[in-house]
Computed example of a mutant assay.
Amino acid sequence: MVNLFSSFDPSTSILSLSLNWISSIIGLLCLPICYWFIPSRFNLIWSLITSTLFKEFKVLIGPKGHLGTTLIFIALFSLIMFNNLLGLFPYIFTSSSHMSMTFSLALPLWLSFMLFGWINHTKHMFAHLVPQGTPSVLMPFMVCIETISNIIRPGTLAVRLAANMIAGHLLLTLLGNTGPSLMIISVQFLLLAQLALLMLETAVAIIQSYVFTVLSTLYSSEVY
């Protein structure tokens, strides 16, 4: 089990430089040059995706949100989805499966939301600690519960993304390691199972980036 989880440890290095994290930017080199100059099919598809995300995030943030806020979350979605999908290729380290990256994405976002809310909308933040209609007897308990739930938000965001990325990759690794010890007929079923899991992991990679971004958007909308 130690060797199994060691595959998610960024330990590959040359001259004390960690090479696993290069996967976060190496995909930019694979984009075709025509993507940057003319409206190619990739550009049109991505424009459709970003426009859809812009409309949805604009509704979630509300009319009180600042201009340009949706662009931050679209960029966040693009970064996470890019790293998730890149990790499906062989011998490429999935940086989004490591807590050091997911927590470094979640903590600054949450901290900036909290500082902005408590500095500019202090009364609203205090009122948000007690849900509307709470009996006076339960108010102290609700304040404690809401405070704890706010504090653990960056941790839950980071753990959710990293755990979902690790779980699917572990299952693919476990099934792949059983291949040499199986018969030829069983290997055919194993290949079908691996293809199905790969399709599932592709969907999970997109869904988890969407979930991370939507939750961050909802957290930002609470501070107005």
Score class of each variant (00 low, 15 high):
Ala163Phe: 03
Ala106Glu: 02
Leu53Thr: 10
Leu86Glu: 06
Ile72Arg: 13
Gly168Cys: 01
Asn20Gln: 02
Phe126His: 14
Pro135Asn: 13
Gln188Phe: 12
Leu4Tyr: 10
Glu201Asp: 13
Leu105Met: 03
His66Lys: 15
Ser7Gln: 15
Ser149Leu: 15
Thr147Met: 14
Thr52Pro: 01
Thr178Asp: 14
Gly27Phe: 05
Tyr210Arg: 07
Phe89Asp: 06
Phe89Leu: 12
Leu182Thr: 09
Leu175His: 11
Ser11Met: 05
Tyr210Cys: 08
Asn164Gln: 02
Phe73Tyr: 09
Leu197Trp: 09
Leu76Pro: 06
Thr213Ile: 02
Tyr224Gly: 11
Gly133Met: 09
Trp46His: 14
Leu138Glu: 02
Ser100Cys: 06
Ser47Thr: 15
Phe54Ile: 07
Tyr219Asp: 14
Phe8Lys: 02
Thr173Asp: 14
Asn84His: 05
Leu161Asp: 04
Phe82Asp: 00
Ser100Tyr: 01
Phe141Pro: 05
Phe37Ile: 03
Phe212Gln: 04
Ser112Met: 15
Asn150Ser: 15
Trp118Asn: 08
Glu222Pro: 11
Thr213Ser: 15
Gly65Arg: 00
Ala203Pro: 00
Pro32Thr: 15
Gly68Glu: 04
Val204Ala: 00
Gln132Cys: 04
Leu161Met: 13
Ile119Lys: 13
Met139Lys: 07
Asn120Cys: 05
Lys64Tyr: 03
Met81Trp: 04
Gly155Met: 11
Leu53Met: 13
Phe113Gln: 08
Leu138Gly: 03
Arg160Ile: 05
Ser97His: 07
Ala167Ile: 11
Gly179Asp: 12
Leu15Pro: 00
Thr94Phe: 00
Pro108Phe: 12
Leu174Ser: 14
Cys144Asp: 11
Gly117Ile: 11
Asn84Ile: 09
Met1Phe: 13
Leu31Asp: 07
Leu198Pro: 03
Phe89Tyr: 09
Ser136Thr: 00
Glu222Asp: 11
Ser104Asp: 05
Ile184Glu: 15
Ile61Val: 15
Leu44Asp: 09
Leu105Asn: 01
Ile61Ser: 10
Leu31Ala: 11
Glu222Val: 06
Ala158Glu: 02
Ser104Lys: 02
Ile49Cys: 07
Ile49His: 03
Ala196Asp: 08
Leu31Asn: 09
Glu222Ile: 08
Phe93Leu: 07
Ile26Tyr: 05
Ser112Thr: 10
Leu157Tyr: 01
Pro135Lys: 02
Phe42Ser: 15
Ile184Asn: 10
